[in-house]
Amino acid sequence: MDKLLAARLHAVQVRPYLAAALFALHVVEDRSVPTMAVDAHWRCYVSPGFVARTPLEELAGVWVHEVSHLLRDHHGRGERYAREHEDPGPGGRGAGGRGATAEGRAWLRLRQNIAADFEINDDIYGDGLPRPAGAVLPSLLGLPDGLLMEEYLRTASMSGLTGDLAWLDCGSGADGLRRPWELGPDGAHGLSRQQRDAVRFRVAEGIKGRPGDAPEGWRRWADAVFHPPQPWRQLLGAAVRAAAGAPGVGENHSYRRPSRRSAGVPGVLLPSLRRSPPRVCVVIDTSGSVSDAELGSALLEVAAISRAVGGRRDLVSVISCDAAAGIAVPLCRAEDIPLVGGGGTDLRSGFARALRSRP
């Protein structure tokens, strides 16, 4: 234990922005663990034999490696990938599904562990942190550095590595598949979801507070923690549907349908209150950094918006905007909208023109 904790102090010294995460791990001694492993509840399972035969500096690198799995949420991402792709495994039955064989689950576990290690190991070592013996790198398969775990899983089969790396096991913290030695969610010394999120935020805060000290992969991760990507298609669709079908009293009188109160006033035709569908003005970024595929996706969204407002194309207009806003073009057919641009990016003028174009 003394050697293990000394290695953690060395890891904190050379990677101070990871200190909050390293000290949040609770050590559990277990001789059935191949080396060191973590579970999703921030427990670190350690083999005494592995600690005894590993140099202290390399042991510090293993500390950083294992906590990187947890900070980057490899367990949650691994579970989502298995559900979405139903990887068949070597036995031909969905390794991530209910009918998976033990061999299929082991193959999926090892494959995800290797891909997660590829994401971590390409830039966390050096500068006082030597690479531990046996650390796997993307270059083993001729793959580029800097990709995410999901990208490595999609682009490489890894079947040639699984036989040589059968010993590799970083625990459920690396892939989301529980191991026999793990204590589980009800075990002692586990962190709650709120505590885990707080640790991630403190680490991201430390990386953002000292720009330039952390590798590119960690800076990219910290940006995602502070500004997580939003499901903009769902948010946009919900906003349009809420505006088009919101309950409540209408604002326009219409004689197309008589008011129900007309029955109480014989001989008098009373108008009813009707809700008008919203007018929508879409600002499309047409700067030089936007690809043709992205512009095509934007036009598909414009067509979906016109359907959401009841097919009233006269209620939808489009503004092309790069560094300056174009003219608001009424919608006839989405595929015929002229998208003019190709310069820099400043969407403020586009939003200003959209606000001025309201009736």
Rank of each mutant, 00 (worst) to 15 (best):
P130T: 14
E86D: 12
A106R: 15
A133G: 09
W107G: 08
D122I: 03
G126N: 07
Y152E: 01
D87T: 13
G78T: 04
G91E: 14
V64Q: 04
D73C: 09
L129G: 00
Q112F: 01
L148C: 10
G92Q: 07
G104K: 13
A116Y: 05
H75W: 13
R93V: 14
G160D: 02
R83K: 14
L161I: 12
P144W: 07
R72K: 14
H69R: 01
Y81N: 02
D123S: 11
F118W: 07
E79W: 09
S139E: 06
A116E: 14
L70H: 04
F118I: 05
G128W: 09
G142A: 07
A156K: 10
A82V: 03
H74R: 04
G91C: 12
G92S: 06
P144D: 00
L70R: 01
G89D: 01
M149K: 00
F118N: 03
S157D: 15
R111E: 04
P138C: 01
T101C: 05
G89I: 06
H85S: 09
M149Y: 02
H74D: 09
R105C: 05
A95G: 13
R83S: 12
V64K: 00
D127Q: 13
E79T: 13
L110D: 02
R154L: 11
T162W: 00
G89L: 11
E151G: 09
G91R: 11
M158Y: 13
I114M: 11
S157M: 02
G142V: 06
L161M: 15
R105L: 12
R111F: 01
D117W: 01
I114N: 05
R77L: 13
P88G: 05
G96Q: 12
L161T: 07
E86K: 15
L110F: 00
D123C: 10
V64T: 08
V64W: 01
E86M: 14
M158T: 03
G91H: 09
L71C: 10
R109F: 00
D87K: 08
R83C: 06
G76A: 12
R80T: 11
N121A: 12
A135H: 03
G78M: 04
E150I: 02
T101V: 06
E103V: 14
W107A: 15
E79L: 15
L143R: 15
D117I: 03
G91N: 10
L153H: 07
G160M: 05
L141E: 01
E151Q: 15
T155V: 08
R111V: 03
S157Q: 11
E66T: 02
V67F: 09
A95V: 06
G134P: 00
R109C: 05
